[in-house]
Write a protein that binds this DNA or RNA. Structure first.
Length: 266
DNA sequence: CTATGATGGAAAC
DNA sequence: TTTCCCTCATAGC
């Protein structure tokens, strides 16, 4: 499921498959309220992203498609071998070589260039963007009484981090999730930002989240090619911490599950 | 078969 | 703070 790395990954895949080419567009599910007709037969110019927001740009139109996958939205992009459209697809793009089907998004609608800028202006800096100054994120955190766990999930503070990366980034920095933002040292914030950039860039390339260093995986886990499912603390509650053996804890912050090791993160 | 939850967020109370 | 939405894999009868 989608955090910022997935959005960048899907953007890359769509650029690879459709950039510069005309596409057939449709909405098999029929809930693309504004209709796919406006982009049907148009040239797919390319993608852009900010955090968990994905934008498809088309030629000749001020019809940018704004996509947010929400909790369980997903793309299926594959070679075009014919076959029938998936009926739950909100948006289907097709050219001679590829098919893209978007299922279950929270948002999929047209916006203008101006609306794109407005949407992005509400978001904090994105660790996946090149040459971005994270100072705005640091300032918001260090002027807040809210916990660092809460702040890292706030998209207006930093864009693209979700529940998995939050838990793992806090663990990697050995930071108490409940520490008020104003008490978090600048060095920790720099490390979190840098770790986020590296891990999410790798995640975008692979299309999966990997946070555990190879030496911290068991032999069986390391030989499992689906080792993206392994974490330091995310969903590891009741299991021993990979580093200290203490039982990983589970809690809730802002209605979302939080996982952490009380001994390592204090 | 139905119930539940999930890497999200907006809108309604 | 709670509710609701979009989908689907998995758990549990």
């Amino acid at each position: 499921m989608p955090e910022g790395h997935s959005i960048r990954h899907f953007a890359n895949v769509h650029d690879d498959c459709f950039q510069g080419l005309t596409v057939k567009a449709s909405s098999p599910q029929g809930r693309f309220d504004e209709g796919a007709e406006a982009i049907d037969g148009k040239t797919f110019v390319g993608t852009s992203t900010h955090g968990k927001h994905l934008f498809f740009h088309f030629a000749e139109h001020d019809h940018i498609v704004h996509i947010h996958l929400g909790l369980y939205g997903w793309f299926s992009v594959r070679k075009n071998r014919g076959g029938k459209p998936k009926q739950s697809a909100r948006l289907r793009l097709e050219n001679a070589s590829f098919i893209s089907e978007l299922v279950g998004p929270t948002k999929c609608n047209y916006i203008t260039t101006q609306e794109l800028q407005t949407a992005c202006a509400k978001l904090g800096p994105d660790p996946l963007h090149d040459d971005v100054d994270p100072q705005a994120m640091f300032d918001k955190i260090q002027s807040s009484k809210k916990s660092i766990a809460s702040l890292l999930m706030n998209q207006s503070v930093v864009a693209g981090i979700g529940n998995v990366y939050r838990a793992e980034l806090l663990f990697l920095e050995k930071l108490d999730p409940f520490m008020p933002g104003r008490e978090v040292p600048s060095e920790s914030l720099t490390n979190i930002w840098n770790n986020a950039s590296v891990l999410m860039t790798d995640g975008a390339t692979d299309g999966m989240i990997r946070t555990v260093a190879p030496q911290h995986l068991t032999e069986a886990e390391a030989s499992d090619h689906k080792y993206n499912q392994y974490s330091y603390v995310y969903k590891r509650h009741t299991l021993p911490c990979r580093i200290c053996g203490t039982t990983v804890l589970i809690g809730e912050v802002d209605g979302r599950k939080l996982y952490w090791c009380k001994k390592c993160q204090s």
